[in-house]
Design a protein around this nucleic acid. Sequence first.
DNA 1: CCGCATCCGGGGCGATACTG
DNA 2: CAGTATCGCCCCGGATGCGG
Lengths: 218, 218
Amino acid sequence: MRSYHQYCSIAKALDVIGDRWTLLVIRELALRGACRYSDLQDGLPGISTNLLADRLRELETAGVVVKREPKPPVATPVFELTEHGQGLIPVLKQLMSWGRRYMVTGPEPDDQFRGRWLIWPAERYLTDHLPEQPAEVIQLRADDEPITVEVGSGRVSAHAGDDIPPDATLTGDPQAILALLTGYRTLDDIRDANLRPTGNESAIERVLPGRTDPAIDR
Amino acid sequence: MRSYHQYCSIAKALDVIGDRWTLLVIRELALRGACRYSDLQDGLPGISTNLLADRLRELETAGVVVKREPKPPVATPVFELTEHGQGLIPVLKQLMSWGRRYMVTGPEPDDQFRGRWLIWPAERYLTDHLPEQPAEVIQLRADDEPITVEVGSGRVSAHAGDDIPPDATLTGDPQAILALLTGYRTLDDIRDANLRPTGNESAIERVLPGRTDPAIDR
DNA sequence: CCGCATCCGGGGCGATACTG
DNA sequence: CAGTATCGCCCCGGATGCGG
């Protein structure tokens, strides 16, 4: 990228990650951890293959990404954020919070979606309101890639996959699940419309932001 | 800007502020408050005039900026961040923290600098280590635009201008002042080389990050 | 002088095709 | 699977014009 030629920390950061697609590549690497080129392509619908290759090369040069070639027999190279690259996660999460308002109107007709994009919103907007209770697991199903949300000890964490049997599941379209996570709608609001809860619903109520929950716009 | 067409909060945010120069325009508006077109041009060395007009128009459409036309007699329109636009300040500050490492090697030969770019670094890296002491004022002079740093009650705040008579002043080139603010160098390290302190130096020592100060890489 | 609008040249970007 | 190659196009950058 062409440099801004400004001796300012923000401008220098943008010299590295200000190009088109660059921050989304980093988002995908942050959400997936080490992964292959084709995994990134799947998580970045709309990117052209040469652009992805370009960005990965630039980010590697900048020390944000490492490309690791596995042992000779088989397998393909994997890409991963360096420690320096992981320092961008707070930036991405702040951007996520700021962009929330653009999600409430629902997706545009041709918007793409991936289930793992719910991971950070879940961790950001859900709260364990019953920290004394035993831990519980909720599964989110907005596309074919389920997200597992673990709740307990006052903490909420989420990851992709269905490796833990859930106490409750939440199936629905992305905007319905997001409206629930962010407190725009209640479970009863959209239960029959676009959202189907199964299992122990109290596990879901346990984490939903309440009307007085001040977390949303912090 | 061309949309990413992804139903993801980060992608939607980048649809609004992902264009080249856009975040720097917002940086300048955040540092200056309401200001004129020509003020922005001065604070954004390198931007072309049509780009600045484009960005301001786009940001106004997006509800990030308001253009306010003053009373008929004289004066020119001023631009200002909306409340929604001010929500980007945490994003900018996170980017600043992440970009710090690109500042330590000093500016490139043709890098531009403006004194007000020290405001957020001062607030970010300085700490009032003597909160019980009476308040003091330090003035930073890295170019012709002095920065006033107020210290007291455990807080540090900075703004452009010389409206408060300082207890101490710190004059030097930008990288010397930044190295001091971020704890890379000590006052004695660079006193004679590129830095000239005047007045009550204890006011400066009061706020400098110590070796054990954990604030730097948070 | 301030606040833009207009006019190009060049390069980043996007879509497709192709290869080891 | 993991990229490279090619080719328009449009965004960006720099210069200039111009009305209030």
